[in-house]
Design a binder for these strands. Sequence first.
DNA 1: CGCCTTTTTGAGCGTATTCAACATACGTGG
DNA 2: CCACGTATGTTGAATACGCTCAAAAAGGCG
Lengths: 231, 231
Amino acid sequence: MRDTQIQAAWYGLDTCEKCAIRHLVLFADLKREDFSAVHLPIEDLWLAPGTELYGQDQSAEAVFTIREGLVKLEQYLPDGGRRIVSLLGQGDVAGLEATLAPAHEHAAVALVPTKVCRIPKPVIDRLSPKLHRQLMTKWHDMVLRSHQCARELSTGSARQRVARLILLLGLPGAPTCRLFGRDDVGALLGITTETACRMISDFKRRKLVEEIAPNQFRRDVAALQAIADGQ
Amino acid sequence: MRDTQIQAAWYGLDTCEKCAIRHLVLFADLKREDFSAVHLPIEDLWLAPGTELYGQDQSAEAVFTIREGLVKLEQYLPDGGRRIVSLLGQGDVAGLEATLAPAHEHAAVALVPTKVCRIPKPVIDRLSPKLHRQLMTKWHDMVLRSHQCARELSTGSARQRVARLILLLGLPGAPTCRLFGRDDVGALLGITTETACRMISDFKRRKLVEEIAPNQFRRDVAALQAIADGQ
DNA sequence: CGCCTTTTTGAGCGTATTCAACATACGTGG
DNA sequence: CCACGTATGTTGAATACGCTCAAAAAGGCG
């Protein structure tokens, strides 16, 4: 995990109790006494874009709760290409297969500055019975994400896919959103980098989006929605 | 569930103990004494192609272990279209969200003659602690399937996608496989019915596949693999 | 046998890809 | 500090690919 900026690392779970997105995270159901049963390091990390949480086929040592930011899950194709198979955001858990499999079946990489909480595998095992329902829910979320990617981001024209992605990023209805590399946009939508670029440029020209700062966009939600729905 | 042919329905789990694919199914871990704790009907069903196991947004009453055949999970798009977001086969469990959510978030429909085992939700709840690990594994499988669909069936040229689908269906390396409607092939691969049809026809002309019986194909695995990998 | 659905084929068009060139930004060493 | 190199983003032109619309052919099923 190079390029990683470690903001803080606690040996205990004190911070979990104060977590602002507590209702979203893996430990949502746990009570004070459960926390005290854990004596393993849970690290709070800030990741720069491009930072790898874990690599494909890497041994699974921990799961990561995403507190803020955006993480891609990608797999390598036989021809050397790659495909983003899912996107994870706030409240999602990356690396859930650690609870079952010895290795990760995809790489997880931050797309934008991302804050995660690294939970070692033994912590999960120790809290296992209490966590079951919550873990199930996270698996469920994972499937929903994946299906959403197929349904919204791999269907329709390139123009529609890009519009849907821009709508999907950032809070629903909010005027701004943060984008990431055109390369990743292409791999996510199943189109080429150039096509992704053309569509975004075109949106800029038509004033559907405006690039406030590098990869920071102001967007015309209504107009984009119209395109997403097919003109 | 119209068009359904019920072959047998037991009120007990005797048959689970004798199940030929026992190692694959949801009850893999359970012991004799666990079975006797269940007194709810578990039905063994044969489904004709096109039979709906459950509909999108339908209330979730049961999960279905697939003993034989092929099931599609599909969702409707805002424009009225539809997209197959996953394929399930032997050993997979359809409707797992029944364990968490009140309704199904997609429709599940048999693509070929399919044998399933219908397990009412209360059975799952009753056996819950014992089933946890196995359920997790099934969720995991679900995610793997979904990612596989994105990676192999929604990437590359139409020609490649069709080749990969034909390879994916049936046992790995086996000379034959069973296909389904061109309409569904299209919705699964993110291409039109016509394009799917053209590709299959083309494969026939080039003797890469041969239609033994309706939708039953003999295939040239090596040649198709070459196409799947990009010529 | 005729009707309906599904599959197949054709022709023209629009879109996305390919391959190339050029622009821009960033970081490093001269 | 600027020159240079690399990585990333943008644009152009020609091609190839998949889509649309239309029509014909091939099954089921009453």
